[in-house]
Design a binder for these strands. Structure first.
Lengths: 267, 267
DNA sequence: CGTAGTGTTGAATTGAATCAAGTGTCGTGG
DNA sequence: CCACGACACTTGATTCAATTCAACACTACG
């Protein structure tokens, strides 16, 4: 029912054994999550149980499939759409990751969201048919495009789909409220702990290791998202490493003590 | 199309002449916005052009009317629902105002939203059928209750209503993203300026004065919403008053220089 | 190999929080 | 109607967490 079901598969299906040393020379190989194969359909997509199709039956999924356009992959830095673009579609991340951001009057940017496989991008345009943010690929990524007029039409035929999309938007609202409380009352360390735990849970959802993963965003992106400077982000990472809660090597994160990381939030 | 149409009626229909002195002994009488009359229907509700019914035709409004329950008014401090309550309905504010808040682990509260007439409360429960926040009346207030299962069923029959509700949720998401950027990059003064301008625009929507209005929430509520302490809220109000941008008398606000108030955001 | 972008760390500064003391306001009950 | 008490608000002094400014190191990529 929830877009992020807490259905207990966190940590049980890691392709990456926890014992592989992080400090090895290569990158963490398990973090290449999903194939960029455009031939896949919702029916056989391995993200189907955490994406739009949840709660749809087989024939409904086939109908959804028909309106989805599977575009060419995006390269790192490419935009899916830009602020003020006309809104036409929402997008489901198939592989890779994205950030959404706004540019302030003085040109500095603030990151509003990160997106991982199975998550829905573009709901910022539904209200007034103009995108309120820009969205950019953080790495080589592929997406499913869902023209919104067709999604509305199909939702009108399939009550389950209407219900599902209401639920997705509702979850987005809850998530935004949680970030509201994070930004209005957490310390820098609590913000980073919360951020890492969120990424961890979302990697688990994609059947990837919740303990070891790559940050595809820069320190500056993280800072803009959490309301901190990039220097503070760097300092907190260093401090958490010194406390042996996490291990950081460049963009690689290894959560050494999940319990203590969670405990940071409870104080 | 938008829930908060910028269709230019800001400031043209003030019941309260701008010349009435704020420092008079009584409260600002124009701030009693809407009748608490439970007999009114959507068709003749004067909020109908900024509430759920926008974009519905007459017969559609009649059908919407049939599923709406017009409950007894709530007194100041009464809860509409509490965090973790089962989600059953969304609510439209008919008169008065509300705050939503969450209680942290240590019992301190953080305000996540304020609601004014014509706005929709309760979308925090749509995603997982449990309310994520508590919502309380800030003054004597009345609401329309819309059982969500019936709203979904009716949306399925009326494409315009489905579309309208998607748009309302989309606008909520955009609003939350704007608060995200506010909290992650604005100074205390910018936050308060933005807050006052938001209230001003929303009072204008209700055909009330955008320059002079009552704050029905405490300084502490405002601080919890904006990520500031109540002392800082008080200090910034005093400072804006010294600069002659606003005039504050207890809970009464008089915006003396809208241009300079807006200019605070542009730096 | 060099350069631009990204990240780390230190020192000084500052905006807002905290601590503290006091005033103002409102609702209640005598 | 007034006195009381609880709550809301203001203002000042001090502290502190995070920013800013600055210098330098690492990495990736043509």
């Amino acid at each position: 029912m929830s877009q992020q079901p807490m259905n207990g598969f966190i940590g049980i299906t890691n392709k990456q054994p926890a014992s592989v040393p992080l400090a090895s020379t290569g990158t963490v190989s398990s973090v290449r999550p999903c194939p960029h194969n455009p031939a896949v359909s919702c029916s056989n997509c391995r993200l189907s149980d955490l994406c739009l199709p949840i709660a749809l039956n087989k024939s409904e999924i086939v109908q959804l499939d028909e309106i989805i356009e599977r575009n060419r992959p995006l390269r790192k830095g490419e935009h899916l759409y830009r602020q003020r673009d006309e809104f036409r579609s929402v997008f489901a991340v198939r592989s890779g990751s994205f950030k959404s951001y706004v540019l302030g009057p003085d040109g500095q940017s603030r990151v509003t969201s990160f997106f991982m496989p199975g998550e829905i991008i573009g709901m910022d345009g539904i209200g007034n048919r103009i995108h309120g943010v820009s969205t950019m690929a953080l790495e080589h990524s592929s997406i499913c495009e869902i023209p919104f007029s067709q999604l509305e039409r199909l939702s009108h035929q399939l009550p389950n789909l209407q219900s599902r999309f209401f639920a997705i938007m509702g979850n987005e609202i809850v998530k935004d409220q949680q970030i509201h409380t994070l930004l209005s009352s957490y310390t820098a360390e609590q913000r980073l702990a919360s951020f890492l735990l969120s990424l961890s849970a979302r990697y688990a959802r994609c059947q990837l290791s919740p303990e070891r993963f790559i940050l595809h965003m820069t320190r500056s992106d993280i800072g803009e998202y959490l309301g901190l400077t990039l220097e503070t982000v760097s300092r907190v990472f260093s401090s958490l490493q010194k406390k042996e809660v996490i291990l950081v090597k460049n963009r690689e994160i290894d959560i050494k003590d999940m319990t203590r990381l969670k405990a940071i939030l409870g104080e």
